[in-house]
Computed example of a mutant assay.
Amino acid sequence: MKPHPGPEEARRPASDIRVFASSCTLHGLGHVFGPGGLTPRRGLWAAAVLLSLATFLYQVAERVRYYGEFHHETALDERESHRLTFPAVTLCNINPLRRSRLTPNDLHWAGPALLGVEPAEHAAFLRALGQPPAPPGFMPSPTFDLARLYSRAGHSLEDMLLDCRYRGWPCGPENFTVVFTRMGQCYTFNSGANGAELLTTPKGGMGNGLEIMLDVQQDEYLPVWRDMEETPFEVGIRVQIHSQEEPPTIDQLGFGAAPGYQTFVSCQQQQ
């Protein structure tokens, strides 16, 4: 039988922790903070609760530490391939338009945006190109096609390509596909466009890839008229090696090949 609480103890309100412990579902907490003084039984319950809490915190800390070690398993499946698909190779002349092909009509429509040439500067720019100024009473055409401008005034691969060989076999402009980028009219080798069969190679190294010789046509480069975002200050070819599924972003991912030098490029494919 439990002794009845005295008059003072009965009048005293229960503490918040005792009220919480009596209604809490955490096993053992109600036995620790029950009414009455400290007894051996309450001490054993308190020791059991503290031991359980310490064990729980230790397991949590151990799992957090284990997670922080980032254990992982890597499964490697190595397969030998005797023939690999050759990547696409996109070439762009750093100069977007040939000076001998520009006309007063081109300057009227595309001069401010592409070259930074204002209408009042057309005559001076034409003189810098070595061309006569626009005739008196010149009237620009009512329509203008930027793609036709790049196709007509851009560097032609037939004029730039001096020699082309793939794995020792001759190739030519017919093996390239015209593609338009932010650098103008460019050319992609082994693009796979129009259902063309993709070229393959059995191994890497010299003689097993693409070898080309190009004429950058430096005499056709435009004069630097004004410093703009698209103003080229270099001479050479911009190159990007990419997969056939990836469109060329040669202005961002391409690398330069300087004239007068041989440039050797090796690459690896990662999947």
Rank of each mutant, 00 (worst) to 15 (best):
R65N: 07
V49F: 05
E121T: 07
L50F: 09
D77A: 15
L107E: 03
A120K: 15
F20W: 13
E69D: 13
H108I: 04
A46G: 14
R63D: 13
T85F: 11
C92Q: 06
A110V: 07
E78N: 12
Y67F: 14
R83T: 12
V32K: 02
A14D: 10
P3V: 09
L44R: 15
L91V: 09
G36R: 00
E62H: 12
T74P: 00
G30T: 06
R18D: 04
V64K: 04
P119D: 05
R101H: 03
P40G: 08
V117Y: 01
F70K: 15
N95W: 09
R79N: 04
L91A: 04
A75F: 14
F70N: 13
G36I: 00
H108N: 07
E121C: 04
R63W: 14
E8N: 15
T55K: 09
V89C: 02
L57M: 03
P40W: 07
E78A: 15
T85A: 13
R99W: 06
D16T: 11
L53Y: 01
L91K: 02
H27R: 10
P87Q: 03
P35R: 00
G43T: 13
V89A: 00
A10E: 15
I94V: 14
R42P: 00
I17V: 08
H82W: 09
A10N: 09
